[in-house]
Amino acid sequence: MSTVAWITARGLFGRRRALLLLPLPLLLVGLAALCRANNIAPSDWGTPVIVGLGLAVVLPVVSLIVGTGVLGSEVDDGTIVHILTKPLPRRDIILAKLGVAVGVSALTAAVPLFVAGWLADSVRLGLGLAVAAAVGALAYSALFLLLSLLTRRPVLLGLVYILVWEGLLGRFVSGTRVLSIEQYVITIADKIAPTAILEPKVSVPVAVVMAAIFVVGCAVFAIDRLRSFSMAGETS
């Protein structure tokens, strides 16, 4: 593990904000277990719990908390300067932080999604959801990492993307789905484990190519922004 990744991980788990990661995955697993224990048909609870809660809320919100935490918090409190005053290529810094964000987000979201998919249908659906969640965590993390460098309010903008773009416009304006990570995740999970619970709205090539564009595009842009990181004068 690189020193940057080590500091990032220590910072992430050393902040109270890390506790925010727990409730949503627990809620997802708890609801799925409750439905299963009460013998409710998966066709009744699968879509609202797995898609409505798991893919539309848990995965993006966890990625938002982690993705903005790995860099945005350091930008906010100024500690990023200690890392930036080292002769490290900015690419290495972004990739280390992205690696930590993806690892933590993927683990936090994929495990409960696996459990929910398994309880709703099969281990295969669980695996499909876990793999798709990992891809989604990668794309979301790259996006939210970039937002940390573009704005002083990355969490707010991230929430706008999740709630307004994906949650609202994605439901009613079909064209916006091409730029919706949630839709890529649904499509990839459905490709691995086809089931009536998931209703993909974009094709597999679109999902794969667009997810790759999100990851690469956001990472490259973030590297360039970090190269031009400026500090405003405080005493001047």
Partner: peptide
């Protein structure tokens, strides 16, 4: 960034 091999900075902000 290569300049930081020969440059040290103590910024004012106590971070």
């Amino acid at each position: 960034p290569a300049v930081y091999r020969q440059l040290g900075l103590v910024a004012e902000r106590e971070a």
